[in-house]
Design a protein around this nucleic acid. Sequence first.
DNA 1: ATAAGCATTTATAACGTTAAAATATATGGG
DNA 2: CCCATATATTTTAACGTTATAAATGCTTAT
Lengths: 352, 352
Amino acid sequence: MSEPSKTKRPTQRTIAAKMGISVGAVSRALANDPQMAEETRALVQKMAKELGYSPDRAAQRLRTGRTQVINLILPPHEEILGFGTLLIRGISARLENTGYHLVVLPDFGPDKSAEQIQRVVRDRLADGIIFSRTTPDDNRIKFLLEADFPFVSHGRSELATPHPFVDCDNYAFARQAAETLIDRGAKRLGILLPPERFTFRQHLLHGFMTAVRTAGVDYEILDGISLDSDANAISANIQKRFAAPDAPDGLVLPGDVSGLAALAAIQDLGLVPGRDVQLVVKQTSGVFDLVRPKIASLYEDLSEAGEKLADLLLKRIAGAPVSELQYIQPIAGRPPASDTLFDPQLRAPSVR
Amino acid sequence: MSEPSKTKRPTQRTIAAKMGISVGAVSRALANDPQMAEETRALVQKMAKELGYSPDRAAQRLRTGRTQVINLILPPHEEILGFGTLLIRGISARLENTGYHLVVLPDFGPDKSAEQIQRVVRDRLADGIIFSRTTPDDNRIKFLLEADFPFVSHGRSELATPHPFVDCDNYAFARQAAETLIDRGAKRLGILLPPERFTFRQHLLHGFMTAVRTAGVDYEILDGISLDSDANAISANIQKRFAAPDAPDGLVLPGDVSGLAALAAIQDLGLVPGRDVQLVVKQTSGVFDLVRPKIASLYEDLSEAGEKLADLLLKRIAGAPVSELQYIQPIAGRPPASDTLFDPQLRAPSVR
DNA sequence: ATAAGCATTTATAACGTTAAAATATATGGG
DNA sequence: CCCATATATTTTAACGTTATAAATGCTTAT
């Protein structure tokens, strides 16, 4: 039983003993309770820093009921392209130095996801929840509103009660995309939409239809596939469509994967993108800057979305009114500034 | 003070009271302590299920010191293509139903990352750690070994003390890739490598050199860029290289982004991939199945890597010897079976 | 001088769990 | 019939924190 080096980590008791005051006093001093003499507070805080004290999360949590945890329900959607990572990065960035931790829960389908949320609320597993793939009549949102549990959804619902959300301006995207196609001379536009149940399907459709109706061009909604379909299914479907008469000469593709799949399909048919068919994609990743031929694209900045989601959630937890907690993110024409990389040798040319 | 509906969640005390036994008995019955009468155990467990009891994590953690948390240090690397997501998905899948939660910590550079790990160990923020971007002399590994704290690294070190890891067989990849290029008639091979400090650079180089030496062909290591370089930097560098004399006619590209960047560069030069230059990439995402012209590719299954990482970590926490906790993941020729999607309407053709 | 008032601090209890020690009950041997 | 030995359960204490009530000391007004 010789554990000489294992200096056990300091607690409030350690500080209290060292200073000859009570544990309660330490607790309040650290909490900056104005009831406490300014001097004592400073002294305790100094000592705490000296000893490298950090509060025990478990004890705090047990006592106060606050978990200091934010839950992210990670969408199951197999976006080939780092959907999750970017969002997570954004959330983490905002959570940095707040004392909050990000716990990722995988989402195994809509029903399972609801269950999980109930567990989180019931067992107080977190102080707030972030999730995506929102539907107009989202059960999760209804449940969370009812339970008065802090959350921010990525995407809007259409419930009567307003709720906090961050959503990309899909209306603007679809409209701009369609207008771009029309400008380039397309006579019959096609659009690929998300599955019926998602709210943003309506937004996309609305934006698309606005542009189409204004210009008076033909249009169609790609049938038999959705944004969630497997890439191969999308490719196959599009190939089939373009082999049939009256194929569109302009496509709106609101996702990286579907964009790639469509592009591949068109190329495989021997058609020339930009001549035979125009494409506009919504990308979150920057792939289309690296794919040839170059395709018109608009950006959804998921990293910023993540930051915003976390930001609004923290504000919600702090008690801000819902009216201040709704954010529609503008679509960007250019990619967000790329993240810092960690290859200093290459970044800063060696001086030697 | 009327909170009629808010049935507070049941604790062991609730169960104990209801059954007329002591709290301690409940605790041990739930833990399936063989000291406890079989009958009591069954009864308690039944009652617990009936009441919907679930243990308070904070209390357990405070009492036992076990956090039931796994930390993932999320690499800062701006892989455009879902590095993080796939890994996270794999880890989550393995952690499902184990009672462990996954907490994601962003990594803001190598030094910061070491700090974070120290905090985790010192403040017992988790029961185990997973991280990547391993170096031969990795300080984090040295520290964790020293502290005897459970971890699994993604990638190997070259330390004398063996440690748990999951690593992709980069030697095999580079060798197979180079051999493929040689088979296709390439006379001068180029390879893009990760920054010097990473262990897997050596593995890639070794595999590459083995193939090159055996075949006796020319080779070069792309200079001035690394796998971590910005996509634009890679494109620019490769364009410059191919404008100069004795350019390679075969390239090994061990990453999705670099593969795309190289492909774009070559196409922008007016060269024809597959005729003027052969490429073999290592992809983690499946993008290259959707990019034209088709490029030879090998797969690294990050989702499986994540599962394996979590699996080994759990075993390590349970006390398994290190010798059983090292896994070199074979490179795959075909993409891993794609994940389940959640668009049932499209998956199972409607019966109506 | 005494009581009331205020500022500061301490003491107590509790959050829900579990590990260890103590107790009660039953079983078997002498 | 009593002691020893299992077996099953209860009691006690603690993990580190914080909210509340109680106590202390000190000033000020009466």
